[in-house]
Nucleic acid binder design. Structure first.
Length: 800
RNA sequence: GCAGGAAUGGCGGAAUCGGCAGACGCGACAGACUCAAAAUCUGUUAUCGGCAACGAUGUGAGGGUUCAAGUCCCUUUUCCUGCACCA
């Protein structure tokens, strides 16, 4: 009997050994495989077992790639700019760089316990000036290419974070980070023109091996729609109102128009009699919070007193104002076809506006409508010379017809808005721009990057939308790089997402101070083959990264324009009762205790065993006992049976190749929970059968090593393995060895299981049926109608 | 409201192509070891009936296709996720 498994000893031994002799080295010949984790924010709370899951999955996958002869790029870094560090600084007065450094060292210690093959020579930190120099450099390039611009507009403002938010950061009218209700604030801000890439961001999704869910979310977020812009002349004026519609086929049914309260023609269209009412309405709309405006769907509105002329029907239509029309989508004005749009219908009913049906699905005159008919299917009616045509055809042709008639054009619209890129906070990358009274906004010259984040006295954010940096005169006041005159620095900083939008490009060339990344290295090691992380970044980080990558491709930094070929979203680990782990609920499970009591390998395997990797799972302390028991059983089996030095037989070969086959297949399908149960199944089999030959035991150790690397390596070397198990080639199953001579199959009568028979696998149908009948004996009654034999699987006899 | 996903024992879950439902683990129960307990090991464990052999039922609900359905089709309920006045 071998000594019992001592996880502390074995894990310590190999942790040290691998540190001295790294197992993943680049010899310049092996093909690369880039397996990336979403890098963590180094919070003060440290990692809990939920954070572990993604890292374990990526490490299993990396080691598996390693055993396929690849050089695996598997780096780790820190996304360290952000509010918690700054809030901590406000509370304690300690500089964020200090608390961040402390958190990084604690989390790094925890990450190292995972036993992953991270290459720490590639480690990076977004708050390191050597890194954010390039974050700023990208901004400068965007500015030079007209993709970064300043704009004053009403923006999402989080009163609790005291900063503006991007559209992507507003969830249900609330701040994505803190949950505070978002208000509007009129501010001058830096924007990134992500909309210029809308089509490419959308079309690029097709070639990606990403979860369909994420692709769909991005598709909807970008929200491309095809339609037409149509100009409505204002009555008694030479002015025109341009509207956007996806349903130009219903133009004859337009009975009124609505402008958003922010539309810039509101003032000139308002008549003297309606002035007071309109002004009152617009003021109210401006004061409404996002939540009110979005969630209260009761229609409100006011008439301007003016009319426009439908360019096609020449009918007079009233021009109204309502906040259900969004200022920043389309043209901020719509034509309303109440008969064929739910919102317009509601509005028309409320304000008693005319409703003219123009599509009839069944040939009727649609006079008795009780609800709008929204489908573009049916025959046009009440539509001049369009009457009688098919709506579905006209919907496609109308934009061109309108274009030819000279009052509109074919248009594409997107829900995607430009990215509000500046934040009024301290702990972020300074935006490298200098405001000169003569030259305007001037980028900081590239040789002066990075613009270092200065030390401040007070980190406290302000309510005015000014960054704490604005208070440091010595830093703010500078000279214009253009004219040399006095100028002021931009005091806003970049959002949390700036560094994470491109960090994956930097790992492979972290020390390069001449370029963001060398083109030679980029061509060789990029892009990312497999990206693993939570689904919460589906439209934030993942969309921004794709945008950055496309831009960097366009300016020649890299030659690919999609950063992540494959994406895998692991599910969350929830607290014991299925509630999200959080410090305030006190249900956080720390990996540290688990490692001490059970070892890293047990925790790794339990994180996999807990459930399908893409699905959320509730933590159960008892579950890890089972995995730990299994590992000890596996250890004892290998040690004991290896001692016996038993000969190889057809039976042991069948087990060996069955194991290879099942594990490889399940791992290939990313069914990692069943990989673990597969090991348990086969271990049970091997213990029951006894007398496993040495090669089979070695193979088992080899196969388990990506999952439980320490015990795998220890057993491998104990059982005669010379080099590290991770330098061995992943074995292939011999299908011949898997073949069995006889097999037990089920015998059904009328689809119900009645017996089981063991047959030689190559026995013919007639013989098998005969055997089945014999086995059934007098259980088989009635006349046989049909006999079915699915080779190697089942016999079903239909009798009446 | 729209779009996706899910529903299987006491629990987590398994079941390639439509072919033996419940693998594997947890828990529970019984036994061995022990003065005793823990740990460990062995066995049992979907439900109902039966001492048993065995029989019947069974994958949210209802219907259908099929020799055969957790799996395919139709209807429906509940839950989760995302989007939500985008014209």
């Amino acid at each position: 009997m071998a000594e019992p498994y001592n996880h502390l000893e074995v894990e310590e031994k190999w942790r040290r050994n691998w540190e001295e002799n790294p197992i993943n080295v680049n010899d310049g010949k092996k093909p690369k495989y880039y397996c990336l984790d979403m890098f963590p924010y180094p919070s003060g709370a440290g990692l809990h077992v939920g954070h572990w899951r993604g890292y374990v999955i990526s490490d299993v996958w990396s080691r598996y790639q390693l055993m396929h002869g690849r050089y695996v790029i598997h780096p780790m870094g820190w996304d360290a700019f952000g509010l918690p560090a700054e809030n901590y600084a406000i509370k304690t007065g300690q500089h964020p760089s200090i608390s961040t450094a402390n958190n990084v060292s604690n989390i790094k210690r925890q990450v190292k316990q995972i036993g992953a093959i991270y290459d720490w020579d590639m480690e990076l930190n977004t708050t390191d000036p050597k890194f954010y120099k390039w974050t700023q450099w990208i901004f400068v390039q965007m500015f030079k290419h007209g993709l970064a611009y300043e704009k004053k507009m009403p923006l999402n403002w989080c009163p609790s974070c005291k900063a503006v938010l991007a559209n992507e950061e507003v969830v249900d009218g609330k701040c994505e980070r803190c949950g505070a209700e978002v208000t509007k604030k009129d501010l001058r801000q830096w924007m990134l023109k992500i909309t210029a890439y809308a089509d490419r961001l959308l079309d690029g999704l097709n070639d990606l091996e990403w979860p369909e869910k994420v692709k769909k979310m991005q598709t909807e977020w970008i929200g491309r729609s095809y339609g037409a812009e149509v100009q409505f002349p204002v009555e008694n004026s030479d002015k025109k109102i341009t509207v956007y519609t996806t349903r130009p086929d219903t133009l004859y049914g337009a009975t009124f128009m609505v402008l958003s309260p922010e539309h810039d023609m509101v003032k000139e269209l308002t008549t003297a009699e309606q002035k007071d009412a309109v002004e009152k309405y617009c003021a109210e709309a401006a004061n409404k919070s996002n939540v009110d405006r979005v969630q209260n769907k009761d229609k409100t509105g006011v008439w301007t007193g003016s009319y426009a002329i439908d360019p096609l029907s020449k009918e007079r239509v009233q021009i109204w104002i309502s906040d259900y029309v969004l200022a920043d989508y389309g043209t901020g004005a719509i034509m309303c076809v109440p008969a064929h749009d739910e919102r317009d219908w509601e509005f028309a009913r409320k304000f008693d506006l005319p409703i003219i049906p123009v599509i009839s699905p069944d040939g009727s005159d649609m006079k008795d409508m009780t609800e709008p008919y929204v489908a573009a299917v049916g025959t046009m009616i009440n539509s001049g010379d369009w009457s009688g045509r098919k709506s579905e055809e006209l919907k496609k042709e109308a934009p061109e017809i309108i274009e030819k008639m000279g009052f509109g054009k074919k248009t594409v619209n997107y829900k995607l808005r430009d990215w509000v890129f500046s934040r009024q906070r301290y702990w972020g990358e300074p935006i490298p721009i200098i405001h000169c009274p003569k030259c305007g906004a001037v980028p900081v010259p590239e040789d002066q990057l990075p613009v270092m984040l200065p030390r401040v006295e007070s980190y406290q954010p302000t309510d005015t939308g000014e960054s704490p940096l604005a208070a440091i005169d010595s830093w703010v006041n500078t000279t214009c790089p253009c004219c040399g005159g006095p100028a002021k620095r931009e005091t806003n900083t970049m959002p949390q997402w700036a560094g994470s939008s491109w960090y994956f490009l930097r790992y492979i060339d972290v020390n390069n101070d001449k370029e963001l990344v060398s083109r030679e290295k980029a061509d060789k090691y990029l892009p990312v083959d497999m990206y693993i992380g939570g689904v919460e970044h589906a439209v934030l980080h993942l969309l921004y990264s794709r945008f950055y990558t496309k831009f960097l491709h366009d300016i020649g930094v890299i030659d690919f324009d999609e950063p992540f070929h494959k994406l895998f979203n692991q599910g969350m680990i929830l607290g014991p009762k299925g509630i999200k782990m959080s410090k305030s609920l006190g249900n956080v499970v720390s990996p540290d205790d688990m490692i001490r009591d059970y070892g890293c390998d047990s925790l790794r395997m339990y994180e996999l065993f807990i459930g399908p990797p893409q699905q959320d799972a509730a933590w159960d302390d008892r579950g890890i006992d089972g995995v730990n028991r299994f590992l000890r059983k596996f250890w004892n089996m290998c040690n004991d049976q290896y001692e016996g030095n038993y000969p190889e037989t057809a039976d042991t070969l069948r087990i060996r190749h069955g194991l290879i086959n099942d594990i490889s297949q399940r791992l290939g399908n990313f069914s990692l929970n069943t990989v673990v149960s597969g090991f348990m199944e086969y271990t049970n089999k091997m213990v029951a059968a006894g007398n496993m030959d040495r090669e089979t035991l070695r193979t088992a150790a080899q196969l388990i090593s990506p999952f439980a690397p320490h015990i795998g390596e220890e057993l491998w070397q104990r059982m005669g393995g010379k080099d590290s198990v991770f330098h061995t080639e992943w074995p292939e199953a011999d299908k011949e060895a898997l073949k069995e001579e006889s097999k037990e199959i089920a015998v059904q009568v009328n689809g119900k299981l009645k017996a089981k028979i063991t047959i030689p696998v190559d026995l013919g149908k007639d013989e098998v049926i005969a055997m089945a009948k014999k086995e059934l004996g007098d259980k088989l009654t009635g006349n046989i109608i049909k006999e079915i034999y699915v080779p190697g699987k089942i016999v079903n006899i239909v009798a009446k």
